[in-house]
Design a protein around this nucleic acid. Structure first.
Length: 238
DNA sequence: AACTCTGTCAACCGCTCAACT
DNA sequence: AAGTTGAGCGGTTGACAGAGT
């Protein structure tokens, strides 16, 4: 059973750019009644807009705490590092940048930062887990595979998963990865570097729970501590 | 001046998920 | 347990502006 499409393509609904008048109506309504109940909001507020459209307009443009203007170098750096760590999780990244919206960060990444980052050397993060291994394809590419898929001739101890920019989260969170690769089990993973330096295993063991805390309750840990930890995690110096 | 190309970004769309009935 | 609803997320689109020819 799928759900009905939002607003079901109602013909009398307005689309496209918002007018100043519509902005005023929406702003006034939310100031009086608060956020939420987006589906019923347009009718109550007297707007010929879809609820989703109202929500988006409020969150991305009208919200009073929206920060306007250019993204600073500090913010840019943070975006790059967070993206390297968690990939296209724009809302998570935006949650770390007060006043910035996921849409804004996504746009900034797609139009500017992606190109910039592509021109930089990106060290790969490699994880070794109980359930994920790397195999070398005929073409010489490294391919992440699960325990079940692992070829019998794979040498235990020489197999590991390679997780490049952004995809490690997906791997950790993937349902078919089994319990050992869930977020809860992250501390049980071992980290090794491409060059075989396993010092980060000890480092990560010392920080057991750090990543989990960071993922589950971003407001709890201090940004500096996080960044320091993440930088160490990523093995890149500040 | 007129046209084309390119970059930007607000807005839309389709989907998932959690909460509720 | 199954269906429904509301909210949120990420990818994509398209209008617009400015640069280039």
């Amino acid at each position: 059973m799928g759900r009905k499409p939002c607003c079901a393509k109602e013909t009398d609904l307005k689309r496209g750019a918002w007018t100043a008048e519509e902005d005023g109506i929406l702003e006034a309504y939310i100031k009086t009644h608060g956020e939420g109940r987006w589906r019923s909001l347009p009718k109550k507020a007297g707007l010929k807009r879809c609820g989703k459209s109202c929500r988006l307009r409020w969150l991305n443009y009208l919200r009073p705490d929206i920060k306007r203007g250019n993204i600073s170098l500090e913010e840019e750096d943070l975006i790059i590092r967070l993206h390297r760590l968690i990939g296209n999780r724009w809302s998570l990244i935006a949650g770390r940048l007060p006043g910035r919206t996921d849409n804004e960060i996504k746009n900034y990444w797609n139009t500017y930062l992606r190109k910039k980052v592509q021109n930089q050397h990106e060290p790969a993060v490699v994880l070794s887990s109980l359930h994920h291994f790397v195999q070398v394809s005929r073409e010489g590419d490294l391919v992440a595979v699960s325990e079940a898929e692992k070829a019998p001739e794979s040498v235990p101890g020489e197999s590991f998963s390679i997780l490049t920019e952004g995809n490690w989260w997906d791997l950790l969170m993937s349902s078919d990865a089994g319990e050992a690769a869930s977020a809860v089990q992250v501390p049980h993973l071992n980290l090794v570097s491409l060059c075989g330096d396993d010092s980060r295993c000890d480092l990560y063991a010392a920080n057991e729970g750090m990543l989990e805390d960071w993922m589950c309750d971003p407001a709890q840990t201090s940004l500096d501590r996080e960044l320091e930890s993440l930088a160490r995690f990523l093995h890149c110096d500040d």
